[in-house]
Write a protein that binds this DNA or RNA. Structure first.
Length: 720
DNA sequence: AGCACGCCGACT
DNA sequence: GTCGGCGTGCTC
């Protein structure tokens, strides 16, 4: 039944009046048509595009078993507009099939991307025609498609889900606007403050001459980092290539934005942040796609920005949780930029005042080179860090009366003579940690050792197993009075304000984030991450959230605490200029020691080797799978995990309806439902196989129409 | 998610 | 025989 040239024939079923046997024959041949045809048939035999009449379309449905292309016929009138990369609408669904007897144009219109035009389809049935080309603007080129594909594979997600993150929603007005001319490349920059780093000038030189260096950069404390990133961008532009910078939030984006404007002048770069409206977002994105702007700074969605001829990708502060996307498949900026650097053979710069374990691994594996300053430079820019631990507190009579250690009082008093003093307090919304008032041992559940929490109506219960505690007493010292550490820190900050009535108190937190404060004496109370930059630097800082940070039962608790402390301390003047930091935390703890020595890299390297020993990520790869107990066990039964995979759990998942601060992004269960979670761990090298097997299992489940979903997250942020 | 197909039991 | 239950599988 070869149909080499049977083109004019519309679908046969509608034809004359065949006898029953013929009908059966036709039906049969339609059902299991064996031969791919040279030219597509459509139901109506409408006129088709003369060349490449088949459009391969990615249907925009995030369902995994639909994670493939569908072929559609290109009608002649859409031939010109139906170019690869454009948005299209197509009919999709069972109702659209050519049903015996009559044709029905059932099936809803849904959006998709035209991925390519080809001469023939390998689909054996009749093709439906493209319904509409939404816009002739090509938004999805091969590069972005390849990246999205790689990200989907890495995170066991669907291509459509990734594209939803990567391509902003269309805005017709923004599309209609003309985009400006491509600016000429700037001159190569002076190395500036990059000279403070061992191979800093060399790194810039490599970028400027078209090279693709990869570096993990441990930035010196102080505000220069933004300008240093801008110089790296300038160097890349000077080589005739584009550059992309991703930062965790709007404020750092504004800093880099300002530095770029200063260095390159206006109009040379785009700012892509989530808080811009749809029109503005799409306009900026389009100016990048169209090649009119070659440098981009933005927050995490910008990680996919379609920068032309990419020469550098950079991420600032990769330990910030905002770099992990909230939406499936939860890609992380650092990982996506790694993929881009590898795929596009471009430069890579990961910068932070602190150092994540993952960053340390990039260096240790040899994938990236360290970009660090020597100890001399560090000592010259970092503040003096002093600790107040339990022993000091116990000995300190003043601390028990005034709730604040003598050392802290003295440092604040002295600091206020010379400038603003920063007081870092834990975020509200953290489940208040309860501890023994006498010995400060955290209050733990008798049954599962989980953290005890105070109920609104009074009384205690376990945050893990939910068991009520009626008669708590301290297992260490026998004390029976509790204190809430978060509340304690906040009250301490208030008391400080009262103790220095002549000094203004400014607050920066979730509701209202201050960007900068003047260099005059003031108490600046801030939650981690919201610290304003002080003009001329803070004279001192008091870090009060030590216990709250380190008490979390999380693999990253130490790294996170150090990162937040360093984030605050980096805003304090250098030791030589009198800058002092007091951290209220046990001086024997590793993150505290790392802060005192200002050695985030050493901390990360030690954590890394420990993780390797324990088989924890990022040395192994982990994925979490969560769902109702039934859904989860069905999923695991159907999954063909790699042979070297280890399944840990299941354990109950705390539901997301609890305290807002404790709700983990993408990790909590929907309120009201009981969920469980397993962690699946594979050794290095099996990450791709793990992702593939999870994706296959998920696809099989969805195809079966299984009701209850399971949530898959590769590289979960929190590992209890 | 729809929606049609098809293979079973109860009906005019 | 034929109508219609819902279980299964496909959607270009």
């Amino acid at each position: 039944m070869s149909r080499e040239n049977g083109s004019g024939e519309a679908d046969g079923a509608g034809g004359g009046t065949p006898v029953p046997e013929q009908l059966a024959l036709i039906r049969d041949s339609v059902r299991k048509a064996e031969v791919p045809r040279a030219k597509p048939r459509t139901w109506r035999g409408a006129a088709l595009a003369k060349s490449l009449p088949v459009a391969r379309v990615l249907v925009d449905k995030g369902v995994l078993h639909l994670d493939r292309y569908f072929d559609y016929a290109v009608p002649e009138e859409l031939d010109e507009q139906a170019q690869p990369g454009v948005r299209v609408r197509v009919r999709f669904g069972a109702g659209a099939r050519n049903v015996r007897g009559g044709r029905r144009e059932g099936g809803g219109l849904i959006d998709g991307f035209l991925v390519e035009r080809v001469a023939e389809s390998d689909y054996s049935g009749p093709l439906a025609a493209l319904a509409q080309v939404v816009s002739p603007e090509p938004v999805l080129d091969g590069e972005l498609l390849g990246l999205a594909r790689a990200v989907a594979d890495r995170y066991a997600g669907s291509l459509a889900d990734v594209l939803q993150l990567a391509v902003p929603p269309r805005h017709a007005r923004a599309e209609a606007r003309e985009t400006g001319e491509v600016p000429p490349p700037p001159a190569a920059p002076d190395a500036g403050s990059w000279r403070r780093y061992g191979h800093g000038a060399e790194f810039l030189g490599a970028l400027a001459s078209g090279g693709s260096p990869r570096a993990v950069w441990t930035a010196l404390p102080g505000p220069e980092w933004a300008e240093e990133i801008a110089r790296a961008v300038q160097a890349t532009l000077a080589s005739g290539r584009g550059a992309l910078v991703v930062v965790p939030a709007g404020r750092p984006a504004a800093r880099v934005d300002a530095a770029l404007t200063q260095l390159l002048g206006p109009g040379q770069h785009a700012l892509l942040t989530a808080d811009a409206g749809q029109e503005r977002r799409y306009r900026e994105w389009l100016s990048v796609r169209r090649g009119a702007v070659r440098a981009v700074v933005g927050t995490r969605a910008a990680m996919f920005a379609p920068v032309r001829n990419l020469g550098l990708v950079a991420v600032w502060d990769d330990g910030d949780a905002s770099h992990s996307d909230d939406n499936a498949p939860f890609p992380h900026v650092r990982e996506v930029l790694e993929l881009r650097a590898s795929r596009d053979k471009c430069g890579f710069l990961l910068g932070s005042w602190s150092c994540t374990v993952e960053a340390a691994q990039l260096v240790e594996s040899g994938w990236a080179a360290p970009l660090v300053a020597d100890r001399e430079q560090v000592r010259g820019t970092a503040p003096l860090v002093r600790t107040v631990g339990d022993v000091d507190l116990a000995r300190d009579e003043a601390a028990r009366v005034a709730r604040l250690p003598t050392l802290a009082w003295n440092v604040v008093r002295e600091g206020l003579k010379h400038g603003p003093v920063l007081v870092q307090v834990p975020r509200r919304g953290y489940v208040p940690r309860l501890a023994c008032e006498r010995c400060r041992e955290p209050a733990r559940c008798r049954h599962c050792a989980g953290p005890l929490e105070a109920r609104d109506g009074g009384g205690l219960w376990c945050g893990w197993c939910g068991v009520e505690e009626g008669a708590w007493h301290c297992g260490e010292c026998g004390g029976f009075r509790l204190r809430a550490q978060v509340v304690g820190a906040r009250r301490t900050a208030e008391e400080l304000g009262r103790a220095f009535p002549a000094v203004p108190v400014r607050t920066s937190g979730r509701e209202q984030v201050l960007d900068t404060v003047p260099g005059s004496p003031a108490l600046v109370v801030s939650t981690p991450g919201a610290e304003p930059v002080a003009e001329g630097g803070y004279a001192a800082a008091l870090l009060l959230d030590g216990w709250a940070m380190l008490g979390r039962p999380d693999l990253r608790a130490g790294e996170d605490a150090l990162r937040r402390w360093i984030g605050a301390s980096a805003l304090v003047r250098a030791q030589g200029a009198g800058g002092t930091v007091v951290v209220v935390a046990e001086p024997t703890l590793r993150p505290v020691q790392a802060l005192v020595r200002w050695d985030p890299v050493g901390h990360a390297v030690r954590e890394l080797s420990e993780r390797a020993e324990l088989g924890f990520p990022p040395v192994s790869r982990m994925a979490s799978v969560a769902g109702t107990p039934e859904a989860l066990s069905a999923f695991l039964a159907g999954a063909e995990l790699p042979g070297d995979a280890v399944v840990l759990g299941p354990v109950p998942v705390p539901d997301a309806g609890g305290a807002p601060g404790a709700a983990r992004r993408g990790g909590g269960a929907p309120a009201g439902e009981r969920w469980e979670r397993v962690l699946v761990r594979v050794p290095p090298g099996s990450g791709a196989a793990l992702a593939a097997s999870l994706k296959a299992a998920q696809a099989a489940r969805m195809a079966r129409g299984a009701g209850e979903p399971v949530r898959i997250r590769v590289d979960p942020l929190d590992i209890g």
